[in-house]
Design a protein around this nucleic acid. Structure first.
Lengths: 211, 211
DNA sequence: GTCTATACAAGGATAGAC
DNA sequence: GTCTATCCTTGTATAGAC
């Protein structure tokens, strides 16, 4: 009974800390963020944060793991028999939604990569490389089936990533240049329409009507 | 005579510091980088760095100014009478070359934006917004002249930026996933071909033969 | 003009009181 | 299980010797 109650507190506090850490790490990167500001943002004493997570590095690793889990849920099932236009359009739209909904996640991931991926090299070399190879094979089979134009599958994947994540990572730039406070639902739809049109056109495909 | 000689030393050391600062800021961001590591990288005593640049903030500002100056040299003259296919293709190619040649510049700029552009808000609100408006007007005139398909000019510009800078900012990801050590000249050509094909196709244009 | 020595604040982590 | 007090390192910046 007592252990259960304590477990709940632990769960609750850990979650609060993870959220606060994500908010703070995005502002000044891993090295530039102190445990003190994370503790303040989580409204807990500094030592408490270090009690739940053994070290600053461990906390950061936990944040990254959280982000990657959210990422990995997308486009995990994909087959040669799927329709390229529909599949690519849906993937682009989901990526845009993720970027708009969880910009901090995309930003922390981006900073980690920009700085040379010191905490994610293994993930890039194993999981992500395998993921890209898998999807590339499917795209190549679509091409040889004549379902779409012949374009380099890896570069296509990189392009989708860069264009969609741009609206999260470079949010500040996009909004400031466009003189907006935040994205509204019309903006999001316009982004999806634009990216689907451009990328599918490059693949010799038409944007599917429904959705 | 003496002042001239000293001026040369000053020039030389300032340049060394700026270069070292760029190399170091890119690894851990503004807050995460200490004056000590910059001084070590420049092979000068720490106090010497603070002698040439009044403060850490001033040094960082100088690095950003340097980067923006290199950026701004591109596509500054552009007219309604230019050919869209040729102009866009050349712009994409120059941006790719810049990304491959000066990845650190692109990365520092990216981190600054990701973190909310605390040191560049003015630049975004004034110079960059004006730049984007100017170019958008030209693109719109191309569209109404029937020279290219009707696409949103601002999103087109954002797309070119994101796709080209991706090869600098996400260098680590691209290279690791592709299992390469660095970009070779064939890679660079493949990137240019791919991006030109995709973006021009989306604009209803053909990639020009020569170049 | 250049660099050594130092002031003073803030960082991560831990020991031990509650 | 939670938090206060503290240790030691590192950070920016400057004063003053050379």
């Amino acid at each position: 009974m007592k252990a259960k109650k304590v477990g709940k507190i632990r769960e609750h506090n850990s979650q609060k800390i993870l959220l606060a850490a994500e908010q703070e790490f995005v502002k000044h990167g891993y090295k530039g963020t102190s445990m003190q500001v994370i503790a303040d943002a989580a409204d807990l004493p500094k030592a408490n944060v270090l009690y739940y997570f053994k070290s600053k590095g461990a906390l950061y690793a936990a944040v990254l793991t959280d982000i990657l889990e959210r990422w990995n849920e997308v486009l995990d099932e994909l087959s040669e028999d799927d329709d390229p236009a529909e599949t690519l359009a849906r993937y682009i739209e989901v990526k845009v939604d993720l970027s708009i909904s969880f910009p901090s996640a995309s930003k922390i991931f981006a900073m980690e990569i920009i700085q040379g991926a010191p905490h994610l090299q293994d993930h890039l070399r194993t999981d992500m490389r395998r993921w890209v190879k898998d999807k590339s094979r499917i795209i190549e089979s679509w091409i040889s089936q004549g379902k779409m134009a012949s374009v380099d599958p890896e570069h296509l994947i990189f392009m989708i990533w860069s264009c969609t994540q741009h609206y999260a990572d470079f949010e500040t730039q996009v909004l400031t240049v466009s003189n907006k406070q935040e994205y509204d639902s019309e903006d999001v739809q316009a982004i999806k329409n634009f990216l689907c049109h451009m990328i599918l056109a490059g693949c010799g495909l038409e944007v599917p009507k429904e959705n």
